[in-house]
Design a protein around this nucleic acid. Structure first.
Lengths: 212, 212
DNA sequence: ACTTTGAATGAACGATTGTTCATTATGGCG
DNA sequence: CGCCATAATGAACAATCGTTCATTCAAAGT
């Protein structure tokens, strides 16, 4: 409280960090508003309300700023998901529910974050530097889902279900629903998206998700 | 045969159309190689091997060329899918298999087409003009899948399955798997992707997809 | 064979790009 | 309070952007 975001009293270093973050946020805003293809240094600084030289002062170049933008949002997503998984109980069905709920949380699934996410995915083939941060979603999720599905199959038992294929299905399904949100953010319903996923969960693992 | 693609004898109009298409193809190549954000008029013409004024001669501006690029690939996708659905039999399970096979066909699921697809999706929020062509995939597919799932539910019967939710799941799943291909085109396996979808199909409609 | 027509060319344009750097402003310290 | 270190500024830079248009070229019509 004592140091609210508008507090004028800040150490020099803190102000520097504040500006650094302001540039990252402004870049995300600019991507949402103009599209990555039309984001220029001028446009970013317009959004940030800072002076011309700031980008090259804090990051050495526009490209390095862009890289920090993906990194920032990737880190935020990973942390968000990690927190959700830590908070969930040990039962695999609860962990699955936790992941799904976390994945559709407004903290990570919102117009700006999706605009950034998709924009950089588009450049993935031509700018491999972005890959580690675009990838982060898949790598961690895949491990989590595979573990969960394997446990559920053992508990079931569900002889007809291949845990690896089921895990891939969950991953792809979440990915696809994120995409839906990006294209139709106003008509998109988080609740409906969640119920699509749980509908599939019940199809695969009826004993564990009868209630959903 | 008499007028092969390399044939020097072409009417004036045909040459014009050839150049028009060359520009569209070159733009797609440039997007794949450099990313939409780094596609310039110079870069496109470099790929096309044509002269500077061509873009503004055939399309009035670079932006209109870009719009024609999305339109072109969207049309190609829609036609491809329509052909596949027309060729499929009347049984819903066959139509579903046909759609899935068509959706993963190399004619529409390849690196260049995906690069174009994703690139323009990234700009969807800021450039609404692109929406109708980015949307085409969802609009037609949704109708087809909803019909198929409804029929399957009636045939089943599958009292626990909501045809609308199942259709949305299929849509999102395909979307997500396309995304996987875009990010990991070398390690991606069309066969595996197909088996993920059919695995889900069997989970929803075991009586119809026991064999898959 | 000559004329007509419009497609194709590429030099040149002003605007905007990302970056540099000399200059200014200011928080932190002796 | 005065000095220093460094954060911040913004004018200026060459490079590249997308577009224009006078000119060239060649196919189609007479």
């Amino acid at each position: 409280m004592a140091e609210g975001s508008a507090a004028p009293r800040k150490s020099r270093e803190a102000a520097k960090e504040r500006h650094r973050m302001a540039l990252i946020e402004a870049t995300a805003d600019a991507i949402l508003e103009h599209g990555l293809a039309n984001v220029s240094v001028s446009r970013i600084l317009e959004h940030a309300g800072l002076s011309r030289g700031m980008i090259n002062l804090h990051f050495q170049s526009k490209n390095k700023l862009l890289l920090e933008v993906v990194r920032h949002f990737s880190d935020e997503y990973v942390a968000h998901l990690q927190r959700a998984m830590d908070a969930a109980g040990p039962r695999p069905e609860d962990r699955l529910r936790a992941i799904v709920a976390a994945d559709f949380d407004a903290a990570v699934l919102n117009r700006r974050m999706m605009a950034v996410w998709i924009a950089f995915r588009g450049e993935a083939q031509s700018s491999p530097d972005y890959m580690p941060f675009i990838d982060s979603r898949d790598a961690r999720l895949q491990a989590a889902f595979t573990g969960i599905c394997a446990e559920l199959c053992r508990d079931g038992p569900y002889p007809g279900v291949d845990p690896r294929l089921a895990a891939l299905a969950f991953m792809a399904l979440l990915e696809g629903l994120w995409n839906d949100f990006h294209l139709y953010s106003e008509r998109f319903s988080r609740e409906e998206a969640r119920s699509v996923v749980m509908h599939m969960a019940r199809a695969f693992f009826p004993r564990h998700f009868a209630a959903d």
